[in-house]
């Protein structure tokens, strides 16, 4: 379970989150929506402990992430997979190498790396393009590689911060369907997005934020329909 208990976050004089409370069960698919500066990205960063809450608690699986020491943070992040808006792929390196990059750094054996990377690329539908470099892939395909990299370590939670921000509508829908497919395998998926259409189509839980506060928490994605 992911739990925010009366959580606030300040950056200098700017309030990014104000007394936020919510719970997410493991295996859920949750959208975080709201205008720029609403606090969506801050929530993501607090979950993977890129930031520490100014007050209140952020619990991930009963662990207060703010209390983790410097060397415990990587262990927390290994239970998560992060998908970036700008894909963050290594230029000039094949899709295989991009997905394998972190596994190599974690000391996974070459046989295991091959098995896991090909498995992840199969999930995202890029098994035919293992040798393609980011320059040879479309935006949607690049984000698929990014998702393959996020799931290759078998994370319990996938966090995607504006994963469709740089994509056209068709590719955006494909990416969301892919995240939904990953969610169906039991992985908790948290997505922050501006994309109203997709959120309405997906009919998942939507937590809407405005000026650092939760304005609605709707289980079936009716937020934008009623807007």
């Amino acid at each position: 379970m992911i739990q925010f208990v009366d959580t606030s976050m300040r950056y200098d004089n700017c309030v990014a989150l104000h007394n936020v409370d919510f719970e997410i069960e493991m295996g859920e698919f949750v959208f975080f929506v709201g205008p720029s500066g609403a606090g969506k990205s801050t929530i993501m960063k607090l979950i993977y402990r890129e930031e520490k809450a100014t007050s209140g608690k952020v619990l991930v699986g009963r662990i207060d992430v703010a209390k983790l020491s410097g060397h415990e943070v990587p262990k927390l992040r290994r239970r998560m997979g992060i998908v970036f808006q700008d894909f963050k792929l290594l230029p000039g390196q094949s899709a295989f190498d991009n997905v394998a990059y972190v596994l190599r750094a974690l000391g996974v054996s070459p046989t295991e790396i091959r098995k896991r990377v090909l498995g992840a690329l199969k999930v995202v539908g890029l098994i035919e393009k293992v040798d393609a470099t980011p320059e040879e892939l479309s935006g949607g395909e690049q984000q698929r590689v990014g998702i393959a990299r996020a799931i290759v370590n078998g994370p319990a939670i996938v966090i995607a911060d504006e994963p469709t921000g740089n994509l056209d509508p068709d590719s955006s829908l494909e990416i969301m369907n892919l995240l939904q497919q990953i969610n169906r395998r039991g992985t908790t998926v948290l997505v922050s997005t501006h994309n109203h259409q997709i959120v309405n189509q997906m009919r998942k839980r939507v937590i809407a934020l405005k000026s650092g506060e939760i304005v609605s928490d709707i289980p079936d994605g009716a937020y934008f329909i009623n807007e």
Binding site: Y48, P74, R77, I82, K88, V102, L106, R149, A150
Partner: peptide
């Protein structure tokens, strides 16, 4: 950034 976010040791 990739290594940090994916939980590779400091």
């Amino acid at each position: 950034e990739i290594l940090r976010m994916m939980g590779v040791g400091n």
